[in-house]
Simulated scan of single mutants.
Amino acid sequence: MTLTRPNQQLRRDLKDAAALLKWSGVDLFGVAKRLLAAGDDISADELMMIALSYQTMEDKLAGYADEVKAARIIRAAEQKT
């Protein structure tokens, strides 16, 4: 099934947001590792929890993008940006 232009854009936006969360989480995890090495356990733990929450949301957004592709989620009208 071919996606309409608005649904293609929605899918692309969801995938972009998921990728941004993924790489932000990777960066946060790297900072947390450096904090752990410096002995700042509390800040490192907080950053790791944030990074893990990013991963959870990334998975949800990727799932939504798959649902758009399968036409289970449809943008009703093109949104003006």
Rank of each mutant, 00 (worst) to 15 (best):
A37F: 07
M48N: 07
Q79R: 13
Q55N: 07
A77D: 14
D59V: 08
L20F: 08
L10G: 03
A17T: 11
I42Y: 02
E78P: 10
W23A: 01
L10R: 03
N7Y: 03
T81G: 11
S24K: 09
G25F: 06
S24G: 03
L14G: 04
E78C: 13
A71E: 15
R34A: 08
L10A: 13
K69R: 15
A71T: 15
I50L: 12
I73V: 12
D40T: 08
V26Y: 06
L28N: 09
G30W: 00
K60R: 10
D13T: 06
R72M: 10
L14M: 06
E58Q: 09
D41R: 06
K80E: 10
R12K: 09
N7E: 05
G30A: 00
W23R: 12
T81M: 10
K22P: 07
M49F: 15
T2S: 14
Q9K: 10
S43M: 01
L3F: 09
M1D: 02
A17E: 12
Q79L: 11
L14R: 01
D41N: 10
L10T: 03
D27M: 03
Q9W: 00
I73Q: 03
L35F: 13
A62V: 12
I74H: 11
T56R: 04
V68N: 05
L35M: 08
T56L: 06
E58A: 00
L61Q: 09
K15T: 08
A65F: 12
L21M: 02
I74V: 15
A32M: 04
R5L: 14
D45V: 03
A71R: 15
M1H: 10
L35D: 01
D16M: 02
E46K: 05
D66W: 12
Q55S: 11
I42K: 04
S24F: 11
W23T: 01
K22N: 01
V68M: 08
K60Y: 11
D41K: 08
K15S: 02
I74S: 11
R72Y: 14
L61C: 00
L20E: 02
A38Y: 05
I50G: 12
G30N: 01
K22I: 06
R75I: 13
K80N: 14
G25H: 07
A32R: 03
A19P: 05
L14E: 08
L28V: 10
D16A: 13
A62P: 12
A44Y: 09
T4S: 13
R11I: 01
Q55P: 01
W23M: 05
V26E: 06
M48T: 05
G63D: 02
D66E: 15
A17M: 09
R34L: 04
A77T: 14
Y54N: 09
L14P: 07
L21T: 01
